[in-house]
């Protein structure tokens, strides 16, 4: 199984360990992993600011980089969702380009959904003996449907929780608000700084209140936002991307 690793730009620059954990985890599970070196950004920050029309170059590059693999896997629900929904190349660029983009869209997976739905992982050799709070990032949860949403009347399920429960020693804490947005929101985090920070503080407080030692999630951007707040509060609680926990050694 040829898997292309999609490492979002901010993970590449600020959280290389998340990329490494993702890579190691996939290899451990038997995938042949490739990292297309020219990858940069999915274009989401622009698009969410209303500049989707400027993301054409980005889309072309992404398509070139990621065409031809069985799967494309990224440790970020938000970036993956953006690709799934918005990676379009105009017919102006030719039929081949448009269908290549469609091909890429159909093969891109967020890490936990890839592990659950494609690799059908049932056990993991991992151990993380700590109290952990799971942050449900909105784009992964409500966009990619990684887990059931509290608004919806339907059966309960959660791909991240299912995976985390395979980790030895882990204790998942309950939260008062299971799936409230952390307020990161891409450019929202600076454009609406006051509300963004307040949302982040509230989310962090929920985890602290329930005794989390670590906050994890499938989206590093949300975790970066919450980490920024935790640091500023001089809290000892740390953030860990879910890939790091799933890849943690015995």
């Amino acid at each position: 199984m040829r898997v292309a690793l999609f490492i979002p730009c901010y993970v590449d620059q600020f959280y290389p360990q998340v990329g490494i954990a993702t890579l190691e985890l996939l290899e451990k599970l038997g995938c042949t992993v490739f990292y297309p070196p020219n990858q940069t950004c999915c274009g989401q920050p622009m698009a969410n600011s209303g500049f989707e029309h400027l993301t054409k170059d980005c889309n072309r590059l992404f398509t070139e980089n990621f065409l031809g693999y069985d799967y494309i896997v990224g440790p970020s629900g938000s970036c993956v969702l953006h690709i799934k929904e918005h990676l379009h190349l105009d017919k102006l660029e030719g039929y081949a380009a448009a269908s290549a983009a469609a091909e890429v869209r159909s093969r891109v997976y967020e890490l936990t959904e890839f592990l659950t739905d494609i690799l059908k992982v049932e056990t993991l050799e991992a151990s993380f003996p700590h109290k952990v709070g799971l942050h449900q990032s909105c784009h992964g949860q409500r966009g990619l449907k990684l887990s059931q949403m509290t608004e919806v009347v339907g059966p309960a399920f959660s791909k991240p929780v299912k995976l985390l429960k395979m980790v030895k020693g882990i204790e998942l804490i309950d939260l008062a608000r299971q799936d409230e947005c952390c307020g990161f929101g891409g450019t929202f985090c600076v454009a609406e700084e006051a509300v963004s920070v307040k949302m982040g503080k509230d989310r962090v407080a929920d985890h602290l209140h329930h005794g989390a030692e670590f906050i994890t999630g499938a989206d590093m951007s949300c975790l970066m936002h919450m980490e920024g707040i935790l640091h500023r509060q001089k809290s000892g609680v740390q953030v860990r991307h879910i890939a790091e926990i799933l890849n943690s050694r015995l």
Partner: peptide, 14 residues
């Protein structure tokens, strides 16, 4: 539709 995600929902309520 929301609420019809993949099927690993352990139990169908209702």
């Amino acid at each position: 539709t929301a609420g019809t995600p993949s099927t690993d929902g352990p139990h169908e309520p209702g």
